[in-house]
Write a protein that binds this DNA or RNA. Sequence first.
DNA 1: AAGTAGATGATCT
DNA 2: GATCATCTACTTG
Length: 206
Amino acid sequence: MRQTGERLPNDSISYKPVGEAFFKLPTLTLARNLLGCLLVKETEEGIASGYIVETEAYRGPLDQAAHSYNNRRTKRTEVMFAEAGRVYTYLMHTHCLVNVVSGEVGTPEAVLIRAVEPYEGIDLMIKRRGSMAMKNLTSGPGKLTKALGIHMTDYGRRFDEPPIYIAPGFAPEKIVTGPRIGIPNSGEAKNYPWRFWVAGNPYVSK
DNA sequence: AAGTAGATGATCT
DNA sequence: GATCATCTACTTG
């Protein structure tokens, strides 16, 4: 890990995916640890990557806001029951959202990646998003998947090898927590402070 | 700058 | 047929 706040040099980029052990932590810890890490996606169009700056934890059986609440096991949620480090993608309206599966096998928990700070492949992101405004490129869960080229075809893959993986980035100066976004109909769970973000980062969603 | 409305489609009951 | 872990464009000020 780099010094606090320090970004990687932008020349001679080479990524080293994290190991399997990175994911074997309690879900809330993993949601924190993912902040500052790079999310990398390789496609035929090229490589695109960004620093993760906002996440949310979803904790299976306990959590009314989770797709897997009450151990609900369907074709969609199946991968959440697998081992930590797998890719859980699902569709929300017209958008694809991406999660990191966490927790023990059989415990359906995951961390939603809500925002990243663009790092490599910015031209590609602009092309995919059809927008020039930097701050609008990856500042939301549906936006970042489009910018990075993450699709439903990534469902079930692992986050520790190409074409989609997590790599070490920078150490955030300050991490803030608060209630999660967009889950008004989930009873008590809507107040849990399970959203994590890098304080002051302009790419955090609103 | 902030708030609202409408688009949009798979998944599940 | 209801339910969304969203986005964009359009309003208002």
